[in-house]
Design a protein around this nucleic acid. Sequence first.
DNA 1: CAGTGGTCTAGACCACGCA
DNA 2: GCGTGGTCTAGACCACTGG
Lengths: 252, 252
Amino acid sequence: MATQGNGRQPKYQRIADALRNAIQAGEYGPGDRLPGENDLMATYDVARMTARQALGVLQTEGLAESRKGSGVFVRDFKPLRRRGIQRLSHEQWGTGRSIWSAETEGRNVVVDQIEVTEAEPPERVAGVLGLEAGAQVCVRNRRFVLDEKPVLLATSYLPLDLVAGSAITQRDTGPGGIYARLAELGHKPVHFREEIRCRMPSQDEANRLSLSMGTPVVLVCRTAFADEGHPVEFNEMTLDSASYVLEYDFDA
Amino acid sequence: MATQGNGRQPKYQRIADALRNAIQAGEYGPGDRLPGENDLMATYDVARMTARQALGVLQTEGLAESRKGSGVFVRDFKPLRRRGIQRLSHEQWGTGRSIWSAETEGRNVVVDQIEVTEAEPPERVAGVLGLEAGAQVCVRNRRFVLDEKPVLLATSYLPLDLVAGSAITQRDTGPGGIYARLAELGHKPVHFREEIRCRMPSQDEANRLSLSMGTPVVLVCRTAFADEGHPVEFNEMTLDSASYVLEYDFDA
DNA sequence: CAGTGGTCTAGACCACGCA
DNA sequence: GCGTGGTCTAGACCACTGG
């Protein structure tokens, strides 16, 4: 009496498919409530766990999110556009503007959970920055919250012998941010490399970004180089993939 | 007697945490078999479903993958490096080399499931390409398989009035690929825009890329522009996020 | 064939949200 | 307080893998 009684695929998949189609067909729009476990049990004549599994599929796919005590809802997707190349042009930070200002025009940005420490860097960071064993770095950790929603975690590593005593080691780095300060110190960033990965979040990342199930994160690892290819900053960012589209514009 | 008997968090989370820590500590390396459902039931004195949930967490996180009838195994992560900007320089396709050749040096690449059709494009594509209603496009659909593992799905859209009759409408586009042919037709691509998103795969994408649970996909949408900003190609790519690192190098 | 994960049932108690 | 999802148990049969 168990298992796939009728069709080929598992019951929970058939139910998930039906719901997915209904969503794609527009029967349920962003923010709408989907039929709950009890509805599905009745409609499809299955056990609670099977209905749960079906709803779980949609959450894992990132199409829906559950709210405890309330229901399962169709998710929305309205990302920020992050222009990878233009945003790092001199004109941005050279004039005291934040790199963020272009993409957050008229929205409520809060920088949160700022932590500035000095420590020995992890090995991969030391490697990228070309540091010798035992060298210290300034570690700047922070979270960006946009309209109440955390969207980005960032950790910057800067060689301490370059930045010690500057505003970079303070919580507030002043107008134009880190890059303006580096320029004043004679280490103006002239070249950048960004590496992009994507994976599911760790527990900690999911918490700090308030991610619902089925939301991957994008990792952007940026290395900033000063003249003659000296790396001066390594920045590891963790982005909520539902909040971002990355854009790179370049010539052939 | 049910629910979180001892600690604060759910049992399955505690079990998952223990396994995750063991993996991170190196007790289980890539490819190693994890304790199975039966082991966990005995070790932690829980029901089968609870052990399953714990293993499910690790799979959703992309740390482990299950093989039916065999066990649950620690996943590996050895991505390809895709240099977004250099790979599209003239030198690549201008000399008849494939854009792929740089990143697949000495490996076994197969292009698979090639489909070339002519059709009206989806609205978003027509918009990007600046086409009028009713205009047709050449649609090139294909899959790239690297060392037996499918890693990339790509769908290119090209305005049919630009490419009709050329090798672009054939399965084999000849040396240098689409871009070399476009150049011959007087529509040499000189500028590119790539947009990057990340989300969980659809059922179909998961199948075509043989993705295991908990593996997101990266979407790369590239628009190629000829002189004076005319868009000549829109290419939607779906990448296995476990197979790729994207890299963008640029000056300030 | 024995062991594995995959699916499923039919119960149960809990914490949370909202009216 | 009632309905929601979240967790859990103790069974069961299936399909697949591997020796």
